[in-house]
Design a protein around this nucleic acid. Sequence first.
DNA 1: ACAACATTTAGATGATTAGCTAATTGTCTA
DNA 2: TAGACAATTAGCTAATCATCTAAATGTTGT
Lengths: 101, 101
Amino acid sequence: MSNVFKAISDNTRREILRLLREEPLSAGEISKHFPVSKPTMSAHFSVLREAGLVATHKQGKMVIYQINMSVLEDALLGFSGAIGLGLRSNTQNKGNKNAKS
Amino acid sequence: MSNVFKAISDNTRREILRLLREEPLSAGEISKHFPVSKPTMSAHFSVLREAGLVATHKQGKMVIYQINMSVLEDALLGFSGAIGLGLRSNTQNKGNKNAKS
DNA sequence: ACAACATTTAGATGATTAGCTAATTGTCTA
DNA sequence: TAGACAATTAGCTAATCATCTAAATGTTGT
């Protein structure tokens, strides 16, 4: 819960999530988009994974990262609600949480 | 923009915003709700103010803090959009950004 | 089994952060 | 103007964080 907000407080991690919105990507593919070392990227992946914002599976020697929309949605909606900012989920996305657009 | 996410990454600051959702409050009144020192609270206020999430005005010897919904809404909606999570603002709140409910 | 590749772990460093106490600034009101 | 009250600034500390290089782990193909 609180970890979600910590996770998205870093711009690199928000950008990782933005990339993952398009499609699942391997650690290496994601890393190509950022001017930081692989180990640093790996640490960012850990933070995202521990917050539940991404899930992984192995595919050969690669680790594929996939965004978990519902965790993000729950956190944002929960906070938005607690604070009286009436954000609503787009019903178009219901049951299609990884929709491209 | 990025400062908004840093600001709401801390639980105490999210709680401050939650309190402010009800009504504008003085620094002292807000501080009563938290088990930390006044100077620490003052530092939290600074972070929120610099992120544009709260506005202040003086009233006698007190400093009144008021939440700025639109900054929060813009950040959350912007991020939600960039990431393909289709959150929408509650149209009921349009032009009434500090509505209680 | 070995070499090449993908990723993570280990270990270190400098920067930022949340917290504290003490001191300062500003604003009444008696 | 002196005292009381509200809030912030100054200065410190311990913890967390983002980053790096080097080393380790795991996987595939020859």
